[in-house]
């Protein structure tokens, strides 16, 4: 029995190893092609670089010099980080407010937040873009407000779910001791919220970093990474520099892989929590 089990387990191990390699192949192929000449990519992506087709870092240099890669990367980073910070701070305050203050208004607001989670983006795509342009929010700072609006549904929902389980006595004690609501929120409540705040931050980071359509419609000349990638491909199919394009894909993937390796535990926990609650 145990001998048989051992054999079965080593077969499973072999199978999983093969599958894991198959899962990594697509990323590896892109990485490999980013070091090949632009003419030897389409049509033969699976060929290893040879002496004639290997170009070193040329594609990356092209991407940075001509395709504005660093600018797009920096812009994506700025928008993602500042939006996530704003979302976490504003939404935890709002979540606390709508959970602790029980009025008709807060109940309606909470229901609207939940409602917004099921509305597909295409429903508000055109009218949201119109509103944003009317209010002159169509710039890298204005888009933070837009992300706060779109991110608030899931974030408030998750955070207030957690706040409901926090004993109200702690806050009352703080207020009796002379804390203002602001002080008791930031000194007492917010530290307790930390695990859920991390989950909310991770879910929003993944969404905003990868988001394409919203920045594409709203930002115009300023391009984030996904927008830059899409626009590179939208041009003429024949004249595109595939080498530079591969370098762009690699640079879009690297931060995600680094982010994943450094906070893998939090990410997996956060994604599961987000799924179960959403």
């Amino acid at each position: 029995m145990t001998a048989r089990k051992k054999i079965v387990n080593s077969f499973i191990f072999l199978f999983l190893s093969a599958l894991a390699i198959a899962f990594l192949v697509p990323i590896f192929v892109v990485f490999l092609n980013s070091f090949k000449t632009k003419f030897s990519i389409v049509g033969s992506p699976f060929e290893l670089p040879t002496q004639e087709t290997f170009v070193g870092l040329e594609n990356y240099i092209y991407g940075i010099k001509t395709a504005g890669l660093l600018k797009a990367f920096g812009l994506s980073l700025f928008i993602t980080v500042s939006s996530v910070v704003v979302i976490v701070v504003c939404c935890s305050m709002t979540a606390w407010y709508v959970t602790r203050v029980k009025t008709k208004g807060t109940r309606i607001l909470y229901t609207l937040f939940i409602f917004s989670m099921i509305v597909p983006f295409q429903m508000v795509m055109y009218t949201m873009t119109y509103t944003v342009f009317q209010l002159h929010l169509n710039n890298p700072v204005g888009i933070i407000l837009v992300y706060l609006g779109f991110g608030s549904g899931l974030s408030v929902f998750m955070l207030s779910g957690f706040i409901k389980s926090v004993p109200i006595e702690v806050e009352e004690a703080a207020m009796i001791d002379g804390c203002s609501p602001l002080q008791s929120f930031f000194l007492v409540v917010f530290p307790i919220l930390k695990p859920t705040a991390i989950t909310v931050a991770i879910l929003n980071t993944m969404w905003i970093w990868n988001d394409f359509l919203l920045p594409y419609l709203v930002l115009g000349a300023d391009k984030t990474m996904p927008v830059a990638i899409q626009l590179t491909m939208q041009g003429a199919y024949g004249s595109i520099n595939w080498g530079g394009f591969m370098a762009m894909l690699v640079i879009a993937i690297i931060p995600i892989v680094v982010f994943y390796i450094t906070c893998q535990k939090h990410i997996i926990k956060g994604v599961v929590a987000g799924a179960v609650k959403g």
């Binding site: 609207l112 509305v119 119109y130 509103t131 408030v156």
Partner: peptide, 21 residues
Amino acid sequence: VFALPTLIAFVVAFLYPFAMG
């Protein structure tokens, strides 16, 4: 302080565009 900033963003980015849609 607590709810207004989120509420404004929510109205601008979602609620008003939804109704207009």
